[in-house]
């Protein structure tokens, strides 16, 4: 006969300790090898023992004052919780799901915001176009000198044409590709999306301003009778790139409108909900910007033919449109 009976909390611990030890081993196995690589029995045991451990923890908080035990159970349950509720999706299936369903669906759900984005850009372009014909000096207001590349109302028609059809294209496409991506438009897209949170205003203004520059540049070439040529030059990458900015603007507007018109939700909750689609829009826009950079870096130098440029630019645009409209529809 033992001289002392174990106290209640010590008995509690003694009875369950082997299960906790087993759970500890399973958790460390799940953490090192991953839940995918565990055999069925181990994975099943992990979930079962985890639930037992949460029960143990709840009981222990009531009946024991053994700090060591409480801390151990707390840590063990937390570790088990983290490995039981780990994200289970593989990266491959994740990427496939994004491209095949979730991205096009998000695009279709937020069509109104994207339309607004295009509208901002379009109105901006129209305004810029008109203002140029009113007074060519507007050109310098809308287009910063480092972007104008020496072009302006004062430059000769020959020079303007030579920019469009380069006689000796850049020897390294890669360099142009990289410099492009970190140029103006990518930064615009990032700002347009991110600043949408501030009640939409910066997004609208930036997109509109971007449109102004576009309109003014186009007007300059139209003025010299080179309208079709600049159209081709812009089409190659512009269809993709300007659409990307408009889509980024749509994402930003979505965030901003969630804050402006949260409906029945709190503003934070509305923002989080709007974030689901807005993030997908941002990812789509960044993919489009990458493609646009690729087109600008390589295709525009290789393709000096006018109709070829139109076909390539708008063809790529059609592919995007087809993806957004046709992708992710459930088969009946």
């Amino acid at each position: 006969m033992e001289q002392y009976d174990l106290m209640r909390s010590a008995r509690f611990r003694k009875e369950r300790e082997p299960e906790w030890r087993r759970l500890e081993a399973l958790v460390s196995e799940a953490e090192t090898r991953g839940l995918h690589n565990m055999d069925f029995k181990a994975a099943r045991d992990l979930a079962a023992y985890y639930r037992q451990a949460t029960t143990s923890l709840a009981i222990a908080r009531e009946i024991t004052l053994d700090k060591a035990l409480l801390e151990y159970l707390e840590a063990l349950t937390a570790r088990a919780y983290l490995s039981v509720y780990a994200p289970q999706e593989r990266i491959g299936s994740l990427i496939r799901r994004f491209f095949l369903t979730s991205a096009p669906q998000a695009m279709r759900r937020s069509w109104l915001f994207i339309l607004l984005g295009f509208l901002c850009m379009g109105l901006g372009a129209l305004t810029g176009f008109m203002l140029y014909f009113e007074n060519p000096a507007w050109f310098h207001v809308f287009i910063p000198p480092e972007l104008a590349n020496g072009r302006g109302p004062a430059s000769t028609t020959d020079y303007l044409q030579s920019v469009i059809y380069q006689q000796d294209p850049d020897s390294t496409g890669l360099g142009a590709f990289a410099t492009f991506l970190f140029s103006h438009n990518t930064r615009i897209a990032i700002f347009v999306f991110g600043l949408g949170v501030f009640l939409c205003v910066p997004s609208v203004l930036l997109t509109f301003f971007n449109g102004l520059g576009l309109g003014a540049l186009y007007a300059l070439y139209v003025d010299r009778g080179l309208g079709i040529d600049i159209g081709g030059w812009l089409s190659v990458h512009g269809v993709t790139e300007l659409s990307a900015i408009c889509i980024a603007c749509g994402g930003g507007l979505q965030l901003g409108s969630a804050i402006l018109f949260p409906g029945d939700r709190t503003r934070i909750a509305a923002l989080q909900l709007a974030g689901h689609d807005a993030v997908k829009l941002a990812v789509v826009a960044s993919i489009m910007l990458l493609v646009a950079a690729f087109l600008e870096g390589f295709a525009r130098q290789l393709l000096q033919d006018l109709s070829g440029r139109y076909i390539l630019g708008w063809g790529v645009g059609l592919i995007w449109l087809a993806w957004f409209i046709l992708g992710g529809r459930s088969r009946r």
């Binding site: 033992e2 010590a10 500890e24 060591a68 035990l69 151990y72 707390e74 840590a75 063990l76």
Partner: peptide, 20 residues
């Protein structure tokens, strides 16, 4: 912070061993 589960001995049990 990732918690580290370390189960220390039960002090109540140690007592039994020492004072038998």
């Amino acid at each position: 912070h990732l918690p580290v589960p370390v189960l220390l001995k039960d002090l109540a049990n140690e007592m039994r061993v020492q004072t038998e």
